[in-house]
């Protein structure tokens, strides 16, 4: 791998970092096809680099989101319990499942999630509205919207539903290697009434912890290509910074539409992949 290729990879990966940081997703969806289809890198090395890229997206953007209070750390840890449990379960049963059926199911889920996101406008509950739920675990939080500078207090509901769905999200990412953030954001926003930007920042915080496991295993086996991973990480860091600026530039409603569109595109790519027309995604 020569220097120019590495530079090009770093530059292209800024887009993955920017979209990932803005939408609360990992960017593996962009990095893996980019490396395998664009640069002919083996799947194993690409997945390793993408895991490092996901952590870079998470760490790079969370530096800013935690400072702004957009990241709800308690909520992130609460949901992370069931996500990791789900991903372990998913990885264990992955060999026994039919990938085509899974891909089709996943794409249906994406379309449904996109539809529910589009149908819904921002629903906000004060911490007092959610006092009953807070008796179980108090996840209410406050953030300052980076665009309008408004201070927003919100309560979090639907705890059981949220836990159940994030274990499904974790399981799917264990089975298919994608989809962590894509499921977490709608779950938090639609089922738990978390404001969209807070949901994205919280998902961004979580994906780093989810990718951690895979990254440790890959490092332990020596599957990481040092130059490739560093190029991806450097590009993604730059992109994540851009993503946090975009988060401040656009309104929740604009980002909501973009996220729903992303879900539809991913669903389509999954269908195409299910029928074996394309090796990426």
């Amino acid at each position: 791998m020569d220097v120019l290729t590495l530079l090009l990879i770093a530059v292209l990966c800024t887009s993955a970092g920017a979209i990932g940081a803005l939408m609360g997703i990992g960017g593996g969806l962009i990095i893996i096809p980019l490396l395998t289809l664009g640069f002919g890198i083996t799947m194993q090395e690409a997945i390793g680099a993408s895991l490092v890229g996901v952590i870079a997206t998470s760490t790079g953007a969370a530096t800013k989101y935690v400072k702004q209070g957009l990241t709800n750390i308690r909520l992130a840890l609460f949901l992370e319990m069931s996500t990791t449990a789900g991903s372990i379960a998913g990885a264990l049963v992955a060999v026994y499942t039919n990938q085509v059926v899974l891909l089709l199911l996943f794409s249906l889920l994406m379309v449904y999630a996109g539809y529910s996101m589009l149908r819904r406008t921002e629903l906000l509950f004060t911490p007092e509205d959610m006092a009953a739920e807070a008796q179980i675990v108090d996840l209410s939080c406050r953030y300052v919207d980076p665009r309008s500078s408004c201070e927003i207090d919100y309560g979090v509901g639907g705890l059981r539903k949220g836990l159940a769905y994030s274990s499904v999200a974790g399981m799917l990412s264990g089975l298919l290697g994608v989809g962590g953030g894509l499921v977490k954001v709608p779950v938090m926003n639609v089922c738990m009434c978390v404001p969209l930007k807070a949901a994205m920042a919280t998902s961004n915080f979580m994906i780093g912890v989810t990718a951690l496991t895979g990254a440790i295993i890959f490092y332990g086996h020596g599957f990481l290509n040092a130059y490739l991973c560093a190029a991806v990480a450097l590009g993604v860091f730059a992109g994540a910074y851009i993503g946090t600026l975009l988060m401040a530039k656009y309104s929740s409603e604009q980002i909501r539409t973009a996220f729903a569109l992303l879900l539809f595109v991913v669903a389509l790519s999954m269908v195409i992949k299910a029928f074996g027309l394309w090796g990426g995604a």
Binding site: L6, T59, G60, A62, T63, L224, A230, A233, F237
Partner: peptide, 29 residues
């Protein structure tokens, strides 16, 4: 988060520059 990011960025950047000077040979971690 901030110091993790800053330090890892510095180390990776240094490694990349050194690789540029010395030449990219062994790529494994």
């Amino acid at each position: 988060l901030r110091w993790g990011m800053v330090l890892s960025l510095l180390l990776m950047f240094t490694g990349m520059l050194m690789g540029l000077v010395i030449g990219v040979e062994d790529t494994n971690v």
